[in-house]
Design a protein around this nucleic acid. Sequence first.
DNA 1: ACAGGCGAAACTTTATACAATCTTCGCCCG
DNA 2: CGGGCGAAGATTGTATAAAGTTTCGCCTGT
Lengths: 235, 235
Amino acid sequence: MAAKTRQKSDAPDASDRVSRIREGVTAAILEHRLLPGTKLGEDEIGEIYGASRTLVRTALQQLAHEGIVNIEKNRGAFVARPTPADAREVFEARRLIEPTIVDHAIDAVSPAWLDRLQGHLAEEREAELRGDARASVRLSGEFHRLVAEMSGHSIYLGFLKELIARSSLIILLYRRHDTPACGTDHHAGIVAAIRKRDKQAARAQMLSHLNEIEAELFLKDPAADELRLADVLGA
Amino acid sequence: MAAKTRQKSDAPDASDRVSRIREGVTAAILEHRLLPGTKLGEDEIGEIYGASRTLVRTALQQLAHEGIVNIEKNRGAFVARPTPADAREVFEARRLIEPTIVDHAIDAVSPAWLDRLQGHLAEEREAELRGDARASVRLSGEFHRLVAEMSGHSIYLGFLKELIARSSLIILLYRRHDTPACGTDHHAGIVAAIRKRDKQAARAQMLSHLNEIEAELFLKDPAADELRLADVLGA
DNA sequence: ACAGGCGAAACTTTATACAATCTTCGCCCG
DNA sequence: CGGGCGAAGATTGTATAAAGTTTCGCCTGT
């Protein structure tokens, strides 16, 4: 019922064309194929998806609202470039919300959900074995999203989708080493706690998981312009 | 800086025309001049604001993303009608986020902010004395938003804006008595705690404030269709 | 040789026209 | 007299074209 209310406005996998565009671009950003600062021209995207600029524009506006695209007036849309301050805010929000989400997930636990979680872990392991960094990044985020879906809390799910997308950009921009996404083992531990219906352990593991991800980042406050230049030179 | 990143995508008070439409409609919904279920025709709104359907459409899509408008394919946009389940989710989320927000607000406390808070309390009292229910409803929500702005946490602010807007609809739909919005006294108490920089008291007061608001609601699960009929008859 | 300004091209923004879909009202049939 | 079918009207979804803004290159003047 709650889901039905949002179904049309926010359809996650609707078959209409604007959703296809949105998801295509989102995937490209989340898999780090589109780097922060990249210009997303309307014609360009429209040609790729065989759609008119009207639809592309709608999709880009949605992505802007989700915070992974910036629309600058009369200049166009660009892949967002979160600042270190943004990064800290995102992770703080995740530390606040995700422990509560796992709580709810445990309340909703069922064999079917455990299967899905287990299957996801398998996918993650496989991608990492393959050395497929893109798939790893994507699956790593999808794990958290899966737990949120499991919680059945549509508002938390919506918030978390936004936070995950931004996190992906943040990790790309600020990670220290070439860490292979965030540890698959952490995810396995969280699933184990969910299976045991041990809320306290699940919350604690989720929290430390998030802390470790953030700890691997290099979040210094640069003069924003310096950063911009440095990145451009690097790319 | 963080704010600048979101400025264009999410501009709260930008001078462009689509923002004017969005804020006009939002205000109408928050002040309970537009009731849940009301159809928002594109031509209709466009004529009011002297804008073409393109701009109206953009504004409505943003409102849909904020959760206060539902867009049904090929049918149009309607003021959202949150279910009791939605209502419980919204208030749970607020209970999670707002105590943390007041914490941050206390960290950012300054004479200027205290003045703004005090001024807002005065406005609220005045509106209530005038018996201006519309202004009361609006100001009551704006208080929470003000605290969120004070916290300087742009992500929490964005989330809370959404939650406040939905809360307004929920209160309209499900309140038991004609309670004069949520108690101004609570707000005064919260401001007092902020002034004293007493985080524990501020969190506790915010929490009990939210609990009291929700306690005044009548959140039974009706057959959705029954509810719809009852409302229509009432209106 | 270099700085400043002018102009054209490319892009976004906005408006309008067209197509598809749904709703509604009337009519016919049972 | 009630229910279902069908066509007209209205509304949304999509595309295209006109308008405004920015940006970049080039030219001129010093």
